[in-house]
Simulated scan of single mutants.
Amino acid sequence: MTPIPLRAHSEFSITDSIIRISDYVAAARAANYPALALTDLMNTFGLLKFYKACRKAGIKPICGADVRIENPEQPEKPHRAVLLIRNEQGYIRLNELLTAAFEADDRNKHTPQINQAWLAQGDNSGLLCLSGAQMGEVGSHLMLGNDDKARAAAQKYAAWFPNAFYLELQRLPEKPDWETSVSGSLKIAQALQLPVVATHPTQFLQQGDYKAHDARVCIAGGWTLIDPKRPHDFTPSQHFLSTADFAARFADIPEALHNSQEIAKRCNLTLTLGKNFLPLFPTPDGMDLNDYLRHLANEGLQERLAVLYPNEAERAQRQPEYQARLDFELDIIIKMQ
C-alpha cells in the first residue's frame, strides 16, 4: 500500500520550512508517490506553483493549508488543523476563511487564525478537515487527559465537516508521548465512527537538512542556536519520507494509510491556467461593462481638462488630442480581456 503525503510546509511557510516546491515535487516523483499535498501555514501562496509542478511531473496535486483555529480557553495558543480542497467551491471557501483571518473586523489581531463561528456558520462542503493530530483541539485535549473534551471536540468538527472530518495520527521517533494522542484518537474514532488518517509533518527534504532548518527557525523567531531557553518544536525526523518508511511507521494501523489514498481520491481541484478572470463589476441600468468603462473614463477626462485648462476655448482646442489618447488606451484595455 502506498500512503499519500498529506501534510508539508514549503518555502512559503517562511518561519518553519526550507522546502522549495520544485525540489519537493521532484522528491515525490523519485519516491513514486502518485499524489502529493501542500499545506502551508495560513496561506496558499505556493498553490499555483505547486499545482503546475505536480501536473508537469504527472503527480496529482492536493492543495490546502495548515490553519490555526481559535482556542477560546487559551487564546494565545490556537488549535491547528489541515483543510484540504476538494473542488472549486472548497478553493473559494478556504480563501474566504484565510482572508477573514487577516482582514475581518472580528479577527484576532495578534495571531491570524480562523474563528470557530466562521466554521459553524459557513458552507464547508468543498473542504476536508484533518484534526491536527496532537496540535489540534481533539489531540491537545487527549494529551492533557481530557478525554471527554476531546470527544466533544471531535463531534463538533464532524458537524462542521459532515462526512469530511478525519482524526489525524502522527508519529515521530523523538516524540513517544504523541502515542497518547494516537491511542486516544483511535478510541474516539471507534466510538463515533469517524475515520483516521496517518500524516507526517514534513518541514525539510533530507535528514541532513535539519541544522539548516533549525537555523531558519531561529532566524524567524529571533533566537540564537546556542540559546538554551529557545523552543525546540521540530525534530531531525521531520524530513520527507519514502513510501516504505511512511508505511512502516503506521503498519499497525493500515486503515490510517488506506484513508490517505481515499482522501487523495476525494480531492479533485482543477484550475484553469493561462486565462485571466476579472471580478464582476456592477454597472447601472444593465450597461455593458466596456461602455461603462468608457463612460467613467470620459467623465474623468472632462474633470481633469477643466483643471488643466480653465479657459473654455483653450480646453475645446486641446480636447481632441486628449480624447484620441484616451480612446487609444481604452481600446487596448478592452482588447486585453
Rank of each mutant, 00 (worst) to 15 (best):
K187D: 09
C267P: 11
F250E: 04
A37F: 11
G90P: 06
A117L: 08
H213C: 12
L301Q: 05
L36H: 05
P236V: 04
L167T: 03
L83Y: 07
A53G: 02
F250T: 01
E299C: 10
I253Y: 14
R230T: 01
L130H: 04
G46Q: 05
A30T: 12
P231N: 09
Q170I: 10
G46I: 03
R20S: 07
L289M: 10
E168Y: 01
S131G: 12
L330C: 03
I333E: 10
A53V: 00
L98G: 08
G122K: 07
A26L: 13
P173S: 10
A212I: 15
Y24T: 01
T272V: 14
A65G: 04
A158R: 10
T15C: 06
L273S: 06
Q207D: 09
D23C: 01
L308V: 14
D177G: 07
F12R: 12
A100C: 04
G208S: 14
A8Y: 06
D233C: 08
Q238G: 02
L257T: 08
A220F: 12
A248I: 00
Q337I: 10
H295E: 13
S22T: 00
F240A: 04
N115I: 07
Q74F: 13
D106T: 07
E103M: 15
A117H: 15
M135E: 13
E137K: 06
I188V: 05
C54W: 03
T235W: 15
K156I: 01
E76G: 05
H79D: 12
D123T: 09
K60I: 09
F45V: 02
A57T: 02
H9V: 03
D331T: 14
S140N: 08
A247S: 13
R249C: 14
T111F: 07
A164N: 11
H79V: 02
D147K: 11
F246M: 04
F234K: 10
P112L: 02
D227P: 00
F161H: 04
F250Q: 04
Y166G: 03
S131V: 14
G145V: 02
W160G: 05
Q121Y: 04
E103S: 15
L36W: 02
E262M: 15
A27C: 05
A251W: 02
A158W: 07
E321K: 14
F246H: 04
A57Q: 07
I69Y: 03
A133L: 08
A65T: 03
D331G: 10
A150N: 11
R266G: 02
T272D: 14
D23N: 12
A159F: 11
D291I: 11
A27I: 07
Y33Q: 10
E329N: 02
T44K: 00
P282K: 05
N298W: 10
V196S: 10
L128N: 03
D209P: 03
L128Y: 01
S237M: 09
D40R: 03
P75A: 13
M42N: 05
L271H: 05
G208A: 13
E303C: 11
I85T: 06
A189N: 07
F281R: 15
K175I: 12
Q170N: 14
R216F: 05
G139M: 05
S125H: 00
A297P: 06
P5N: 03
M143K: 08
P195Y: 07
N290Q: 14
E73Y: 10
L97I: 11
P320F: 06
E174G: 01
S183P: 08
L271K: 02
I188A: 10
